[in-house]
Design a protein around this nucleic acid. Structure first.
Ligand SMILES: [Mn+2]
Ligand SMILES: [Mn+2]
Ligand SMILES: [Zn+2]
Ligand SMILES: [Zn+2]
Lengths: 138, 138
DNA sequence: TTACATATTTGTAATTATTATAAATTTGCA
DNA sequence: TGCAAATTTATAATAATTACAAATATGTAA
């Protein structure tokens, strides 16, 4: 019950999400583990703290968090949905060797020509694939 | 057996892919239908031309095409993998109302700071979500 | 052309992530 | 405390993808 828990409760409340124990712990985990975890990795870690935790709850909670803009979904490879507690625009890099998914700072890309007139944009995503330095030096 | 078929055969050969009937028809379809189709929509159309076509073949072929850089995978929503015969860098816009997936012209975004030094980049993807003009005017 | 090895396609079964559903539990309030 | 609503849970259903082995097609040597 440290003060950080109070902070997380407040963040959830501000977003219009009722702070259940499961929701607080999941948000806590996302906040402190900026690895863009999957549903399953969230579940595997938190089931230790909440032995009754159900994977369905993790699915439900992530859906709820997305609806309230508390997280963003990152889909780079099919078959691997990840989540990001950082909702401001930023890019990602996925290493095709070790699988790590890292944040990348980029200039916000510029639409050319008429594109910006034809759509009402609500979300922008940018990502790269390749090989990270660690994997390249081995 | 029009001359365009010959062209497709040549494209496949140049990429190192043996041109079977199924592969030619699938590439033909992708070339002439720039809607970023799914596995299933490719199958549903082509099974009319090739009644014995198997969906497994479509999966196998798209995997092969990707390995030979003949197509790119576009994963915007989880649960919907699409394919793009245009392999040069360009952006996409997905309308969250009608589901259409359109090409968007953008400047190739610029990595900031050290990012470009830390990775060997092989692919870049940029996409937007929102509402298209047609859907907004209804 | 025929025979045969290799490559490709096909149909089916297995796997796996996600969603649907309904019962159980928890929560907030009268 | 008692009760209605919200949340969580366990289980079953759904659906996309992959694995696999048999069937078919292709290319080449004799
Ligand atoms: Mn991120
Ligand atoms: Mn495209
Ligand atoms: Zn790596
Ligand atoms: Zn639309």
């Amino acid at each position: 019950m440290g003060s950080s828990t109070e902070n997380f409760i407040q963040i959830l409340k501000n977003a219009g999400v009722k702070p259940s124990i499961q929701r607080i712990k999941i948000y806590d985990f996302l906040w402190n583990n900026r690895t863009h975890p999957t549903i399953d990795s969230i579940f595997q870690v938190l089931v230790n703290e909440i032995p009754t935790l159900s994977k369905t709850t993790v699915y439900n909670t992530m859906k709820l968090f997305m609806e309230h803009q508390l997280v963003r979904m990152v889909t780079i490879d099919e078959s691997e949905v990840r989540f990001d507690v950082v909702t401001q625009f930023h890019g990602h890099f996925k290493c095709e060797v070790c699988g790590k998914l890292m944040d990348v700072e980029i200039e916000n890309p510029v639409l050319v020509n008429q594109a910006k007139l034809d759509f009402e944009v609500s979300e922008a995503h940018y990502y790269l694939k390749g090989i990270c330095n660690e994997c390249n030096n081995n």
